[in-house]
Simulated assay, not measured.
Amino acid sequence: MIIKPYERLAQYYETDQMKIIHHSNYIRWFEEARLNFLEQIGLNYDKMESNGIIIPVLSVNCEYRSMIRFAEIVLIQIKILSYNGIKMKIGYEIRDKKTNELKTIGETSHCFFNEEYQPISLKREYPEVNKIFQEIMNYN
């Protein structure tokens, strides 16, 4: 399975006084890329929620390597770093589309909850969803 990077055009309203993308926007971009990733693997978030699966963020880490400016186009590549059916860690690389320069790296960690916000095991309760995540791990 080939997962395409998420393409993002840096918007003017996302810049700060120095005319670079404000650091808080990278976390939003991670979420946009994550939702795009889930869509590509057939687990769009609406479908997951309608099946009673919620994927809250437990932690975020972001390391800024180089500035991104207004109107630059970046590609955000996602990789599942770890997955055990209860928790998942995702890695992100943001690269300039034209130069392939690495701009930012990051990670988010997540767990899986039911609609009552109780932790669940996808292996036990949603084996078909677990199978998809397991297959993606094999492609990483």
Rank of each mutant, 00 (worst) to 15 (best):
I2H: 05
I3Y: 00
K4M: 12
Y6R: 00
Y12N: 05
Y12W: 05
Y12K: 04
Y12T: 06
E14D: 09
M18S: 14
I20A: 02
I21S: 01
S24L: 13
S24M: 10
I27C: 10
W29R: 00
W29L: 02
L35M: 07
F37P: 07
G42D: 03
G42T: 08
N44I: 00
M48F: 09
S50D: 14
S50L: 03
S50E: 11
N51I: 04
P56R: 07
V57R: 06
L58I: 03
L58M: 11
N61T: 12
N61K: 08
N61Q: 08
E63F: 11
Y64V: 08
S66G: 09
S66I: 11
I68L: 02
F70R: 03
F70V: 04
E72T: 11
V74T: 01
I76H: 02
K79S: 04
I80F: 10
L81G: 05
Y83N: 03
Y83G: 01
Y83T: 05
Y83I: 02
G85K: 06
G85F: 09
K87V: 06
K87P: 00
K89Y: 02
K89S: 06
K89D: 06
G91V: 12
E93T: 13
R95P: 06
D96Y: 11
D96L: 10
K98R: 15
T99M: 15
N100A: 15
E101K: 15
E101G: 14
E101D: 14
E101Q: 15
I105E: 06
I105Q: 02
G106C: 06
E107N: 10
F113W: 08
N114S: 06
N114W: 00
Q118E: 10
K123P: 01
R124Q: 14
Y126G: 03
P127I: 13
P127S: 13
P127L: 04
N130T: 11
E135D: 14
M137T: 00
Y139S: 14
N140S: 13
